[in-house]
Every structure is written in structure tokens, then in C-alpha cells.
């Protein structure tokens, strides 16, 4: 994610135009992250909305603008984890992806769908650890704190998630690689 600290400072001071610019800049990351966690369009939209409402309310309390990136990332992660915990989202069909996707190259789009479908098939514990590490870039210790589990459990869950994903993406044991 790219950050514009001048815009963040203005938004923090109550400038609504700056806040709108902040929403515009970060919406793709927030929505896509939420979708990766919950795999349902309405749920992801609600999560994105929740994230920005919380941001609007709590941004004035942020002391250091430089702390915004990690603070905002945690706000997003916590909202997504809460959604994942609350709803039975893992069992919902992934039809929204297929419905929205307009592939420019059919095979690439199909591959992307396969990867997303594989992430969706992971159970909640494995999906959240995998996304926090591979997509959001948290280290083991940060994930352990976010989820309230030991670092050893983070490692073992991450290992299982990666193994399962590898199997699903490469069921016949063929060499990996994009189409």
C-alpha cells in the first residue's frame, strides 16, 4: 500500500475531502483483503464500510501520522478476523467471484479463480494465518498476538495451510507455475 502522509494528516484534522481521498486510495486493498478473508461480496463490502467508519472515528486520536500504516493494517485485519469469526463464511459459495470477473485472458482468469477457490476451501484457522502472513505480511510474532495463539501454533498452521494450498493448486504433483 502507498501512503500519503499529508493527506492522512489533513484527514486526521477533520478535512472531509482528504478523508475521501484516503478512502479512494485504500479502498482496493481494504475490499480485496476483506474479500480474501470472507469470500462473499456483501460481507466484504460491509467489512470495508466498517473499516472506514472506524477509521473516521478513531483517526483524530492517532498521535503519530507515521504510525498510520501499521495501525491501519491492524484495523483492517481485526475487522476481517471478526467477520470470519462471526459468520459461517467458509461454507458459502464463491459465486460472486465468478459473477464479477471479466477475464481479459481466459486461462489467467481461470487460474486466479482456482487460487481463490483454494483459499476459500481452507478452514478458518488456516485461512486467517495464511492471509495474515502471505497477503498482509505480518511476522509470526505479530500473527500470534493478533490471534492470541502461541508462535509455534502460527508456524504449524501456516505450514499446514501452505501444504494444503500446494496440493489443491498442484494435485498431480506437477511442477508449479502460472499459465
Amino acid at each position: 500500500m502507498a501512503y500519503d502522509f499529508e493527506v492522512i494528516a489533513k484527514a486526521r484534522a477533520g478535512d472531509e475531502e482528504a478523508f475521501a481521498a484516503l478512502v479512494k486510495l485504500h479502498m482496493p486493498y481494504v475490499y480485496r483483503t476483506a474479500f480474501a478473508f470472507v469470500h462473499r461480496r456483501e460481507e466484504a463490502e460491509d467489512a470495508a464500510q466498517e473499516v472506514f467508519i472506524k477509521l473516521y472515528r478513531s483517526l483524530p486520536q492517532l498521535k503519530e501520522v507515521q504510525a498510520f500504516p501499521s495501525w491501519f493494517k491492524q484495523l483492517i485485519s481485526r475487522a476481517c478476523l471478526d467477520r470470519l469469526k462471526k459468520g459461517d463464511v467458509a461454507l458459502l459459495a464463491d459465486t460472486d467471484i465468478a459473477g464479477n470477473s471479466v477475464p481479459s485472458v481466459a486461462e489467467e482468469a481461470e487460474r486466479r479463480l482456482i487460487v481463490r477457490e483454494a483459499i476459500r476451501k481452507l478452514n478458518r484457522e488456516h485461512r486467517e494465518v495464511l492471509l495474515l502472513r502471505e497477503w498482509q505480511g505480518y511476522d509470526y510474532q505479530e500473527i500470534a498476538v493478533l490471534l492470541g495463539i502461541p508462535v509455534g501454533t502460527v508456524k504449524s498452521r501456516l505450514h499446514t495451510a501452505r501444504e494444503q494450498l500446494k496440493k489443491m493448486l498442484n494435485p498431480r504433483g506437477e511442477p508449479e507455475g502460472r499459465m
Binding site: M27, Q49, I119
Partner: peptide, 25 residues
């Protein structure tokens, strides 16, 4: 590494719903 790249690549291409920014704002 490929698994990591695949995940990032798949998520980066999730389509955004039209008008989401305005609804949220």
C-alpha cells in the same frame, strides 16, 4: 515462493464492486 505469488496475484485481481467508494463515503 510460487504459492505466495499466486495468492498475491489472485487477490490483487479481485474485481471491485462499482460505486463502493461512494456508498462507503
Amino acid at each position: 515462493e510460487t504459492v505466495r505469488q499466486d495468492i498475491a496475484w489472485a487477490i490483487e485481481n479481485i474485481p471491485l464492486p462499482a460505486g463502493l467508494e461512494n456508498r462507503v463515503l
